[in-house]
Computed example of a mutant assay.
Amino acid sequence: MNKLLTLTIASEIFLLLPFSIIFFTNKKTKKNILLLLFLIIGGGPLLYLAIDDLNNHYIDANIGLGLAFMFTWVYALIALIIAIILVVRKKRKNNSSKE
């Protein structure tokens, strides 16, 4: 398998992980629609540029593809931090309501 394809799939899974955590901890449907929009914003540029790079074999370095990877990784990291904060808040709220 192509190294670019493997790295793209791994990056998209890394992006999907925090959004799935937020999706399963949140029960409001309006927020889930907004969450889907944020997921598309985070993964769209990488998918577009990876498909473009696979179809057109560029001779020079594709700086846009590197920036798309960096954007996706930073976006996924920020989403993961938000997901962890939401899970911790929900746990604390459930523990305080039991007491």
Rank of each mutant, 00 (worst) to 15 (best):
W73Q: 02
N56K: 15
L86Y: 03
N56L: 15
L35E: 03
L17H: 11
I84D: 02
S97V: 14
G64Y: 03
A50W: 00
T29C: 04
L49P: 00
L16C: 07
V87P: 01
N62T: 09
L36K: 05
Y75A: 02
T6A: 15
G42L: 03
E99M: 14
I51Y: 12
I84C: 04
I85K: 08
T8V: 05
I78T: 07
A79I: 00
E12N: 13
L15S: 03
L65D: 01
R92I: 10
L7I: 06
T72A: 07
N62A: 06
L37I: 12
S96N: 11
L17E: 10
R92S: 11
M1T: 12
K30Q: 09
V74H: 06
I21M: 10
G66A: 06
T25R: 12
F14Y: 12
L80Y: 06
F23Q: 04
A79W: 02
V88C: 03
E99S: 14
Y58S: 12
I51T: 15
R92D: 13
F24A: 04
A83G: 07
G64F: 03
L16W: 06
F69D: 03
I78P: 04
F19D: 00
R92H: 14
D60G: 07
G44Y: 13
I22P: 00
I78C: 12
K98N: 14
I9R: 08
I85L: 10
R92V: 07
I41W: 02
I22N: 00
Y48S: 09
A10E: 15
L65T: 03
E99G: 13
T6F: 14
L47W: 07
I59H: 14
N55V: 10
K30T: 06
L36R: 04
A76W: 00
N55F: 13
F69K: 00
L86T: 04
V74M: 10
L54R: 04
L37W: 11
N95W: 14
I81K: 05
L67W: 09
K30H: 09
L17Y: 14
N26R: 01
F14K: 08
I63H: 02
L39E: 00
F14H: 08
S11E: 07
A50K: 03
G42D: 01
L34G: 07
L65I: 04
I9W: 11
A83W: 05
L5I: 14
N56T: 15
L36Y: 07
R92Y: 13
N94C: 10
I21W: 04
L46N: 01
L34H: 08
N55M: 13
A61I: 05
L17K: 11
I9Q: 08
M1E: 11
A83D: 05
A10M: 12
D53Q: 10
F71Y: 13
F38H: 13
G42K: 00
L49N: 06
S11Y: 06
G44E: 09
I82T: 02
K31N: 14
A10Y: 06
L35Q: 03
K27Y: 03
N56E: 15
I13G: 05
F24R: 01
